[in-house]
């Protein structure tokens, strides 16, 4: 199977993630969309690794998974704190800082 199909799939996933960050209102869902973007980048890395026959891309994908896990820890902690304060995880309610 032509590996460049996976590149197209990854680009579609990345776009879905990016659009999701922009249109979804719940902070958790926004964050999930960011994770989708990271996974799309991982898929791209692994596909390129296969196309080029070097292992670098797969190694990078492992690093990215670790970084994404660390990001989840920090992100959920922040979102949870603001949820406990406001009883809402909507990014539209986070509106005190403006102009």
């Amino acid at each position: 199977m032509n590996p460049s199909n996976y590149l197209v799939l990854a680009a579609i996933l990345f776009s879905i993630g990016a659009v999701g960050v922009l249109v979804r209102r719940n902070a958790i869902v926004v964050f999930m969309c960011v994770e989708l973007m990271l996974n799309a980048a991982n898929l791209t890395l692994v596909t390129f690794s296969r196309i080029q026959g070097t292992l670098d891309g797969q190694v990078i994908a492992f690093f990215v998974m670790v970084v994404a896990a660390a990001e989840v820890v920090v992100g959920l902690a922040i979102i949870l704190t603001i949820f406990r304060t406001r009883r809402s995880a909507s990014v539209d309610d986070v509106n005190l800082l403006k102009y």
């Binding site: 902070a27 603001i82 986070v94």
Partner: peptide, 14 residues
């Protein structure tokens, strides 16, 4: 302060 953290985090991760 919490709002700043949420904004910085979501945009930074993006």
């Amino acid at each position: 302060s919490q709002e700043a953290a949420v904004k910085y985090f979501l945009l930074g991760a993006f």
